[in-house]
């Protein structure tokens, strides 16, 4: 047995203007999950403590919250792994969401981005080849099962730093779920789906891997890269900066073996996009004043033909 001191964020949007904290001490085995400790506190000490939960076994995705400074499922987290030296377990609502009551948040932005995917199969009409059904081979299904494990807990969304600065970004879960339909052989709306998720800023993912903490191993970060590759191979919304950036990087590495910074900036923003270039110019000016502008032309690395051979063999797109 241990004394677990739950340090809980308390706030009620109906009555409060600012949040406060309550520390509630419960005597339970220290391997108790954070969710069970909260349940105990609610039933035995303070019935007004609010949080979401249902399955208590990492299936429903309701109980995600910020625990000791990082987000995860309360029902999958043992207190002893997140307790500080004084036995305190800090619980807060998920970041990147508006708090509603205590640990409950407004999930609307998360669901909105999910609804925009049209998250249901949209197969083509029956045809001669498919008079009754569209079958999926085990190999084709294998690609989708990991993503299908998503329980929509929004842990990844709460951890995503891009969401925190730009709420227009679809966020990791929605992009991973877009992949689930884009790569489904039964679906007939691949291009529309890629276009929709590109409009929702697919290319704004910063590759930070914060969403690799997904409690269900969906690993949205890897699926995001898959969706970007699909966008390039299907040539959807290629005028956006994201695909242009990826392709100019590819082009410069094939050309000189190095990522040519100057060329990449111009190729991404647009060589004749004066306004766009002026927007990145302040940083360029600051760098120029310190004598740290990258060279205008890069000398290729020794044996660059080997690099080019790798690109050619793999048929890597460069434009």
């Amino acid at each position: 047995m241990a004394t677990i001191k739950l340090d809980i964020f308390r706030f009620d949007e109906a009555t409060d203007t600012i949040p406060h904290r309550d520390v509630v001490a419960v005597d339970l085995p220290e391997t108790t999950t954070v969710l069970d400790a909260l349940e105990y506190a609610k039933s035995e000490i303070d019935g007004s403590i609010s949080f979401r939960r249902s399955c208590r076994s990492a299936i429903c995705g309701s109980c995600s919250m910020n625990i000791a400074g990082t987000t995860g499922l309360a029902c999958k987290t043992a207190c002893n792994t997140v307790m500080d030296e004084d036995g305190v377990v800090k619980v807060d609502p998920m970041p990147n969401f508006q708090p509603m009551k205590d640990l409950v948040v407004h999930m609307d932005p998360f669901w909105d981005k999910y609804s925009r995917l049209k998250p249901y199969l949209q197969p083509a009409d029956r045809d001669e080849e498919h008079p009754t059904e569209r079958r999926v081979s085990p190999e084709d299904m294998k690609k989708l099962v990991d993503v299908a494990n998503c329980v929509m807990c929004a842990t990844c969304y709460a951890l995503c730093p891009v969401v925190s600065v730009d709420p227009a970004f679809a966020g990791p879960a929605a992009i991973a779920y877009a992949y689930r339909f884009i790569e489904d052989v039964r679906d007939d709306h691949r291009k529309e789906r890629i276009a929709q998720i590109s409009e929702d800023y697919l290319w704004l993912c910063a590759h930070c891997y914060a969403c690799s903490y997904c409690p269900k191993h969906v690993d949205p970060n890897d699926r995001i890269i898959d969706v970007k590759r699909a966008a390039i191979s299907d040539r959807v919304m290629m005028d956006e900066r994201g695909p242009r950036h990826a392709l100019v990087v590819s082009r410069t590495i094939k050309h000189s073996g190095m990522l040519e910074e100057t060329e990449v900036i111009q190729g991404t923003v647009g060589r004749f996009n004066v306004r766009g270039l002026l927007k990145v110019a302040p940083l360029g000016m600051r760098m120029a004043m310190r004598g740290k502008l990258p060279p205008l032309f890069m000398k290729p690395i020794p044996k660059v033909d080997e690099v080019r051979q790798i690109f050619e063999t793999l048929e890597v797109p460069v434009s």
Binding site: R229, I232, A246, V249, S250, V316
Partner: peptide
């Protein structure tokens, strides 16, 4: 992180 967006092997 960019080249992976273009091709899975390169």
């Amino acid at each position: 992180s960019v080249l992976n967006d273009v091709n899975r092997d390169v």
